[in-house]
Design a protein around this nucleic acid. Structure first.
Length: 420
RNA sequence: GGUGGAGUCGCCUAGUGGCCGAGGGCGCACGCCUCGAAAGCGUGUGAGGGGGCAACCCCUCCGUGGGUUCAAAUCCCACCUCCACCGCCA
């Protein structure tokens, strides 16, 4: 969400953002509504003030005068009620549009309608070479009895999977390693609810835009969150934090649920695109200073790169284009990891600065040292998301006889094993 | 799932229809006092929106949303959260 005043004063900047992000939002309608709404608000305020003074007169009046007043009130009350209803209508429509206002992307973002416009910033690591025909992760996992697909799909339908045996242990190792690394960087681990209310989904910007992507449990008015970010922002929604508490750094862990409606029948095989997965998420909440949040963005990105480097995976860092970054993003860098079976890089991490867009929605503020109350900046990036990352490990580190070499940093979590 | 109780300004609390956007205490800030401090005394101390060049003024918010009323923190309804007990349960 944007500041209404900002929209009023910079309508063209908002229109440009709508255009480069490929959105459908009538900014002029929004401006008109805002104006109408303020006018109505003014009228209601005035009428309300009169009503108050009426009520005071009434309290002091005798019975005869009260009867008169009651008659005088009648028309006035109807008028006030009518004004209130109008205000409620324009207010509701205005909020609706406000929730659709995009963040203004940072000036360095490539302009383009979709990911084709993304720019690769750097490629790190060396591509694996095989002196045998490597298997894809699905074949390898099945061969080694590390995953159940057919049986899992009996239980949970398409895209379901069950990890088995050493792959389970590998998953836990990856998560433990990531959490330990983040703890050394003063990120507090938080195991958050995945089952959430509508409110934090609106607060983070997942709703109303991505409704079809989210599992709903209407019976209980709950949803399954697609990322720990939802709960992490939600934890502090509506608060006014003391600036001394910032930056808040969390390592969120949670199961994540995505309907993958927009990708129906894509990547249906294997572990690359699933409805339920496990993620360790880096999250930062800091003061509203672009230099400060830019530093955190760099750090979140660096940590993700450190993880991939530690694991020995080859990856590329991408500057995401305006049309790819999503409504609420200020800046987004994806990290794509090499998958031998695909012969290309595939997204494993996504680093985002939301500027104060998310904090405005979630009404998440802090009191600065100068006493001013400001909306915070929020940022997030994947640390590790499995099983997609497991698939990368299997494919990149497989041996001719179907074993998998374990990256050194994971060995302590696997009883020192070098191979599985 | 059931029964009972509760949710007021950072914290504790007063307030059962108009004198309440709201009193008191704590905390905090400033001032006086003091060589300095403590104590004491005094003053101030929530958020959002709007109007005005400004001084300043108005409106909204007492968990949330509705309702009753000329008038709601106060009455009614629904929901949320917390506490206690019963039932069930990983």
């Amino acid at each position: 969400m944007l500041d209404k005043r900002f929209i009023r004063e910079n309508p063209q900047a908002v229109k440009d953002a709508v255009a480069v992000k490929g959105l459908d939002l009538d900014v002029d309608e929004l401006l008109q509504l805002d104006q109408d709404n303020r006018k109505l608000q003014f009228e209601v305020d005035e009428a309300q003030a009169r009503r108050k003074s009426f009520a005071k007169q009434f309290a002091k009046a005798d019975e005869a005068r009260r009867a008169e007043l009651r008659v005088e009130h009648e028309a006035f009350d109807r008028q006030l009620k009518d004004l209130r209803e109008q205000l409620a209508r324009t207010g509701a429509r205005l909020s609706e549009l406000m929730l659709l206002t995009p963040n203004i992307p940072w000036s360095g973002a490539p302009v383009g309608p979709d990911e084709a416009a993304n720019v690769v910033l750097r490629t790190v690591g060396t591509l694996p070479e095989f002196d045998f025909t490597p298997l894809d992760h699905t074949e390898l996992a099945e061969k080694r009895g590390w995953a159940e697909f057919a049986r899992a799909r009996k239980v949970a339908g398409e895209r379901a999977y069950a990890l088995v045996g050493d792959l389970v242990m590998l998953e836990r190792a990856v998560h433990s390693y990531a959490l330990d690394l983040l703890r050394t960087r003063e990120f507090t681990p938080v195991a958050v609810p995945a089952l959430v209310r509508e409110e934090p989904l609106i607060g983070t910007g997942m709703l109303p835009k991505a409704r079809e992507e989210i599992y709903a449990i209407p019976e209980d008015d709950l949803y399954l969150a697609g990322t720990a970010e939802v709960a992490l922002v939600g934890l502090h929604a509506g608060e006014i934090l003391d600036a001394a508490r910032l930056p808040i750094r969390y390592a969120g862990i949670s199961p994540c649920f995505r309907r993958e409606i927009g990708s129906a029948s894509r990547d249906v095989r294997g572990l690359l695109r699933v409805h339920q997965f496990e993620k360790v998420e880096q999250f930062v909440l800091c003061v509203a200073d672009e230099a400060e949040s830019a530093r955190w963005h760099a750090e979140l990105l660096a940590t993700a790169e450190r993880i991939l480097t530690d694991l020995g995976l080859c990856y590329e860092v991408v500057e995401c284009a305006t049309g790819d970054m999503g409504v609420g993003k200020f800046r987004m860098n994806d990290i794509n990891t090499w998958f031998p079976s695909l012969g290309r890089f595939r997204e494993t991490h996504s680093c985002s600065t939301l500027h104060d867009w998310q904090a405005r929605r979630a009404n998440l503020r802090y009191r600065d040292s100068d006493g001013a109350i400001r909306f915070a900046h929020t940022l997030n990036n994947t640390a590790v998301a499995t099983p997609r990352l497991l698939a990368a490990l299997l494919e990149n580190f497989q041996t001719a006889d179907g074993a998998v070499r374990i990256p050194e940093v994971l060995r302590p979590y696997l009883g020192g094993r070098e191979l599985i």
